[in-house]
């Protein structure tokens, strides 16, 4: 009987230890995980009407995103007000970060750089995004 009680306490102790494992958080309160994934899978730009302004959505698959060179090449439709567009992207993992934040009005008349950061916060990759408007 004593043996069983000891075993139960032991199991409970192990369970508590595992379940109470805490991931550290960064200065913004976001979890720092074990995930080393760090790439951009697609990119989009929205205009003031919340519609895409791009002729083709750049993805890793269509080659418009080069994850080795860290470049995104996009073409915006004729008439796009490229000084005021909102960038969005898909990331390789949910726990990645983008710095600076996307989703804000941004002037893309010049190439813009964004740094992708892995869940571990130890891998950082700079992407340069170049957008040209149809002329």
């Amino acid at each position: 009987m004593k043996k069983y009680i000891l075993l139960i306490f032991l199991a409970a102790g192990i369970t508590m230890t595992i379940s109470c494992r805490k991931y550290p958080v960064d200065e913004k309160g976001l979890l720092i995980t074990d995930n080393t994934t760090c790439y951009m899978s697609s990119f989009n730009l929205l205009g003031s009407d919340n519609q895409t302004v791009l002729v083709t959505i750049p993805t890793f698959a269509n080659g418009l995103i080069d994850t080795v060179k860290g470049t995104v090449t996009a073409t915006a439709k004729f008439g796009t007000n490229i000084t005021k567009v909102k960038p969005y992207c898909s990331l390789g993992a949910n726990d990645m970060l983008v710095d600076p934040f996307m989703g804000q009005w941004t002037d893309f008349t010049q190439p813009k750089t964004f740094t992708l950061i892995s869940g571990t916060r130890k891998i950082k990759k700079v992407y340069t995004i170049t957008v040209t408007v149809q002329q």
Partner: peptide, 10 residues
């Protein structure tokens, strides 16, 4: 209207 265009097409 910060950074707005002066046309709206399509």
């Amino acid at each position: 209207f910060d950074g707005s265009a002066n046309y709206a097409i399509t």
